[in-house]
Design a binder for these strands. Sequence first.
RNA 1: GCCCCCUUCGUCUAGCCCGGUCCAGGACACCUCGUUUUCACUGAGGUAACUGGGGUUCGAAUCCCCAAGGGGGCGCCA
Length: 489
Amino acid sequence: MCPSPQGKPLPSCPIPPTPLRLSFGPSGPLILSLPMSQVRVRFAPSPTGFFHIGSARTALFNWLYARHTGGKFILRIEDTDKERNSEAFLQVILDSMHWLGMDWDEGPSVGGEYGPYFQSQRTELYQAKLKELAAKGRAYEKDGAWWLRLEGARSTVFDDHLKKEIEKVDAAPMVLHDMVRGQVARAEDRDFVLFRSNGEPVFHFVNVVDDIEMKITHVIRGEDHLSNTSKHLEIFKAFGVEPPKYAHIPLILKTDGPGKMSKRDKGALIEEYQQRRYLPAAVRNYLCLLGWTPADGKEVLPIDEIIRQFEISAVHQSNARFDERKMSHINAQTLRLLPAADFATLARPILIETKTIDASVSETRLAEVLGIVQEKVISLEHLPEFMGFFFTADFKKDEGAMANLKKKGGDPVARIRELLPTLEAAEWTEPALEAAFAAVGTANERKPTDYFAPARFAISGQGGGAHLLGVLRVLGRDTTLARLKAFAA
RNA sequence: GCCCCCUUCGUCUAGCCCGGUCCAGGACACCUCGUUUUCACUGAGGUAACUGGGGUUCGAAUCCCCAAGGGGGCGCCA
């Protein structure tokens, strides 16, 4: 069955069925896919800048589609513009893709039977393909460059936008059956350049040639390419080759202000989230939600589940604004769902790097602290300040919290003095400590909670944090009492 | 200027294809109250949207037309 898109024309079923997966017991799974339906998608970045969040999302949708259908995900580097490319820029892309957990089946460092996967190494192919078009009369030389010859009646007109005389061609519209937009028709009206006069091929040409040569079946790319697609379809037509299926996905817009996210916008670069200790799974999860909604309506979900549910037909048609607060929320949720051992593995190096702990802190001790902290902390970035007081007496004191204490509870020092004797006599378990607070409250005709905030501030310098009784238990009797005494002194 | 795409709470969206179940549901943010205590956890509640105008229809967020707004493209950049 065709997955049914909402409110979109569906000219023909553009989505190949998911390959049949049949298990045959211990001899191993056997995947039967229909011969014609092996999906081949590609992400084709140009290493001319940084790894932009929009590029990451495009890569992700391609990757998800490949994984969902059991197809191949190909990474192809479009480095035809020598002026603007560099090794370092390429590395940024590869690193960010690895960080986000996207692996490729063919491409740099893994190879593949349709390589090389760098366009700068495929120039002979492009020359040969150009000759092919020239031989067919569909490409011609002018001003030292090679142009695609459109088919249709020609006329010379003055173009207001370009402010010059141009030759227009009355070519038939190219009709695209886009998987997310339905039928889109657009006519090219001018011949366009295939090869520059400096001998280098242009994007439109190499993109199509490589998609043909690499047997790409589906092109999933940003909507900013939608208008270019008529050029690409003209080139496919000139070669006499059936074009792949296209899916033009919506763009990611700036959080506020006009236009799409650009390299210079805050939060536009994947490496920023890496530096800020975001969980890659959370960033990836959020990116999936920009332009697509899982059928079950859940927002925080594991990648296996996203792969299972991902459908191109469910991709949105309208652009979405980037909202870091929502991503931050997903990050916090994801952090909370992490198994304790994984949380510790992530936390330890950060805590060592920030000198919150040193290497001598045992796994057991760290696990104890992290155990009460994980459910409350909202990001790994904030972890050091959140739990630093467990490992040093020289912790930072939050002045705002102190001011708030005085405003709400009166005299915090007096409260600690009232609390101290009972606490010293108490057994150091959570129920016993809770009982101690209750007893002090009753004795002084106060609510037990009047003592919580002063106690927390005295031992941590903070106004909030992990569950207080847990903090007392983990911090230990001696340290806790010493800090309370110091505070009351 | 020409061409293409889009239009539901401040934001991300569900619903739209197959009109009534929607005085439009969820999430983020915000506000209120609660909670073993400021902010970040958690619980309960709240504010908040079908861009506008015409049709079609007993009935339209849902179908049609127009307009407006937003986005993108129009390079010997990718």
